[in-house]
């Protein structure tokens, strides 16, 4: 199987981000994610995010960079509504999260795939069972599970290891299983929290190529990373956080600002 090479020519045209004169994001109905002056204060004096605004359009591939404690994880937890912002407005997939009732949170999460540095696979289940588990939990019927699981596992290139337990898989393979699980229902948004953080550079490239392919199928990808080389090579949109503030928002940025 040949993976597509990541080159500049392969990058799809960027949609026109809508900005006003101050460079501030304005509400966009069709945006994948929108933060509007979002501030999150954990306890008086501990501010994780302060007045962060941005719009991510459907189909974008966005890197979020920043040192530890800069608010990257808080941002992800806000998008998943694990936390509520202290002030400001968050819209995910057209839904205003402040108006989302508790009971509807699962609905939100089914539309946001998640991939993590530590994979979060269930150790006593095979690759196929881990993917199937997500579908079962969401109430899919048996026949569609039987159809979708092999499909998505072949997409991530793991058809031959369907029945292996996580222990029997390499780190890269485990991350592929976790991507398969996140993507099996084709959510419009995929959030990746340092997906290559535990992987060696060569394996990382494979994972990035997989994510790139998923992005090209129309899925918005928001990726938190420390992988400087990857960000500099791919030249996609970069949101740089620093001490809770949005320091940079560049269309084709690098890991560090010019």
């Amino acid at each position: 199987m040949t993976e597509p090479e990541i080159t500049d020519t392969a990058i799809p045209p960027l949609s026109e981000a809508q900005e006003n004169e101050n460079g501030r994001a304005v509400p966009v109905a069709g945006a994948a994610v929108m933060f509007d002056s979002v501030t999150k204060v954990y306890e008086p004096g501990v501010t994780a995010l302060s007045d962060v605004s941005f719009v991510i359009e459907k189909g974008e591939f966005v890197f979020v960079v920043g040192a530890s404690g800069s608010g990257k994880s808080t941002m992800i937890r806000l998008i998943l509504k694990e936390l509520d912002p202290t002030s400001g407005r968050i819209i995910v997939g057209g839904r205003d999260l402040s108006r989302l009732r508790r009971g509807k949170i699962p609905q939100l999460r089914r539309n946001v795939g998640c991939v993590f540095q530590d994979f979060k696979l269930l150790p006593n289940r095979t690759a196929a069972e881990n993917v199937a588990y997500a579908l079962k939990v969401q109430g899919e019927n048996q026949s569609s599970i039987r159809r979708k699981v092999p499909e998505v596992l072949s997409l991530v290139g793991l058809s031959h290891k369907m029945n292996s337990l996580p222990d029997e898989l390499s780190g890269g393979e485990q991350q592929r299983v976790s991507i398969a699980r996140a993507f099996v229902n084709h959510p419009p948004l995929l959030i990746c929290d340092e997906p290559t953080g535990n992987l060696d550079p060569d394996t990382s490239v494979g994972i990035m190529q997989l994510l790139y392919r998923i992005n090209r199928s129309g899925t918005t990808i928001l990726m938190v990373t420390h992988d400087r080389e990857m960000v500099d090579k791919m030249r996609r949109r970069v949101l740089a956080l620093s001490e809770g503030k949005l320091e940079r928002d560049e269309r084709r940025g690098g890991y560090v600002g010019e």
């Binding site: 009971g103 699962p106 999460r109 269930l122």
Partner: peptide
């Protein structure tokens, strides 16, 4: 807790 974390992650409903 791992199962619970994964369940929440993939959008299992609360009662589930």
């Amino acid at each position: 807790r791992r199962e619970i974390e994964v369940m929440k992650l993939v959008g299992a409903s609360n009662w589930f």
